[in-house]
Design a protein around this nucleic acid. Structure first.
Length: 192
DNA sequence: GAAAAGATTACCT
DNA sequence: GGTAATCTTTTCC
């Protein structure tokens, strides 16, 4: 499976993440996230995300700063990784206290695995709680690059977020319409 | 300290 | 489509 590595792509820098969270969320679709370590290199094209914005009752930062959400107040581009049940989920920090949850990716290369769903995406990439706080603008391990992966200009589907109990009406889930790797439940919502 | 809830997933009917 | 697993963080008494 040909990918990515034949195409020179630009790393996502601080300025990319230091923008309104919804904008960063949409622009992350089609970008690539890559993790390299002794095990090898694993990468995926981001196909689904959710935005967690300021004064958002569904956000982990809604009740202020805690030990867990500490890295959500670090610099734009910082990785915020948290545990939920038996898995971890990864977010990219935008403005202070705000972040974009990575919900699903399309695997690059022929390594196999299923990055559909936030917990599975982290497992696929090898992201663990130890990666919490990583500055992805600098890290040699976790690396995001601009959206050459989005070959086809698919419309973006926008709808309600998954698995939350507050602010369930807000349309802050974004996905590449029709992409087979978008997670369940299948997004409803509208096209933009 | 104790209890409840959870940005999930796998497996059931 | 519904529910249980399973354990950490947060919240409440």
């Amino acid at each position: 499976v040909g990918n990515s590595f034949s195409v020179a792509r630009r790393r996502l820098d601080r300025a990319f993440f230091d923008r309104p969270t919804r904008t960063v969320a949409r622009d992350l679709l089609g970008c690539t996230i890559q993790v390299s370590d002794r095990e090898g290199v694993r990468s995926a094209t981001i196909v689904e995300v959710e935005a967690y914005v300021a004064r958002d009752p569904a956000s982990h930062t809604f009740r202020g700063r805690t030990a867990r959400n500490r890295s959500m107040f670090a610099r734009p581009g910082t990785l915020y990784v948290y545990r939920i049940h038996q898995v971890v989920c990864a977010n990219l920090v935008t403005r202070p206290g705000q972040a974009v949850l990575l919900r699903a990716g399309a695997p690059l290369g022929d390594v196999g695995g299923n990055p559909s769903g936030p917990g599975r995406l982290c497992r696929f990439l090898g992201i663990s709680i130890a990666d919490d706080g990583t500055d992805t603008c600098r890290s040699a391990r976790v690396y995001l690059t601009a959206g050459a992966g989005r070959l086809r200009r698919a419309p973006i589907r926008v709808g309600p977020r998954v698995g939350i109990s507050r602010a369930i009406e807000r349309e802050l889930r974004f996905s590449l319409d029709g992409d087979p790797w978008v997670s369940r439940p299948r997004p409803g919502g509208r096209l933009t």
